[in-house]
Write a protein that binds this DNA or RNA. Structure first.
Length: 107
DNA sequence: CGTTTGACGCGAT
DNA sequence: GATCGCGCCAAAC
């Protein structure tokens, strides 16, 4: 297991991945919340950087992470793929945005 | 070892 | 709503 990039070590990456794994299907989480739940309040960028490093074959629900505005932050062509995955889970995009009041996952 | 960059967030203007 | 500035943390330069 050379990949500690998912759930191996005890650093920021693995903590963020652990939280990410909890996000249920059909729901989304913001970068800020993801970082906060992982123990890094106000470090939204850390979450984004961590996601960017995920291997393409990851089983983590990376697509359920969007920005606080309900928009996809991932640049094309990834954005199209992410949106497609989210819509498959039943999430509705209205004018390029997700209704955060409805889909935002906050335990 | 200092600076820049990035799948960000939020208050202030 | 659009912009700006600052905070945060790791990796790349």
């Amino acid at each position: 297991m050379g990949n500690n990039a998912q759930t191996g070590g005890n650093d920021a990456t693995s903590r963020i991945c652990s939280v990410l794994a909890l996000v249920p299907r059909g729901r989304v989480i913001t970068y800020g919340d993801l970082a906060e739940m992982a123990g890094y309040p106000r470090a939204a960028r850390l979450a984004g950087q961590t996601l960017r490093k995920l291997p393409p074959d990851t089983k983590l629900p990376w697509h359920r992470v969007i920005n606080a505005q309900g928009r996809i932050s991932l640049p094309e062509p990834g954005a199209q793929r992410q949106r497609d995955k989210l819509e498959t889970e039943g999430i509705v995009f209205l004018n390029g945005r997700v209704d955060m009041a409805r889909y935002r996952w906050r335990p």
